[in-house]
Design a protein around this nucleic acid. Structure first.
Length: 117
DNA sequence: GCGCTGACGCGAT
DNA sequence: CATCGCGCCAGCG
């Protein structure tokens, strides 16, 4: 069988990966793409979320790799995402969130990272 | 078929 | 630590 290269399938994987994010935790677009097995298709993740219409999808748990909210600061979407994150117990500082999940895994693998938290 | 755009990422300055 | 620039992926005019 050919590899799963259908756009619809990729899309489904992205949504699945986003839904897999536990409440109170966040993940970057690249992280989602990676977990979905799409490599560096971070932009694809963004595209999927933009096109998504499922209100039950925890899209607010997806942030940029630097922990910044993807939306432009000041926009209604930006405010909403910040509120949702704060509502879930995620510490948002100046529109920025601490991404620990991915870094944590790397730390376990490479061991050498100081406890910066 | 070409080029632009976008809820991106990362190394370099 | 803030900015810039280039690379990546897919949809659209």
């Amino acid at each position: 069988m050919s590899a799963e290269c259908d756009a619809d399938d990729r899309r489904r994987r992205v949504l699945d990966a986003v839904r897999a994010i536990p409440r109170g935790q966040v993940l970057s677009y690249g992280g989602v793409a990676r977990r979905a097995g799409l490599g560096r298709a971070a932009r694809l993740v963004a595209r999927v979320l933009a096109d998504n219409d499922d209100p039950g999808l925890p899209w607010h748990r997806v942030l940029r790799a630097d922990g910044r909210i993807a939306f432009a600061e000041g926009t209604p979407q930006w405010h909403e995402q910040r509120i949702r994150l704060c509502n879930e117990g995620v510490a948002v500082r100046n529109g920025r969130v601490r991404l620990v999940d991915e870094v944590d895994l790397d730390r376990l693998l490479w061991d050498r990272t100081p406890g910066r938290r």
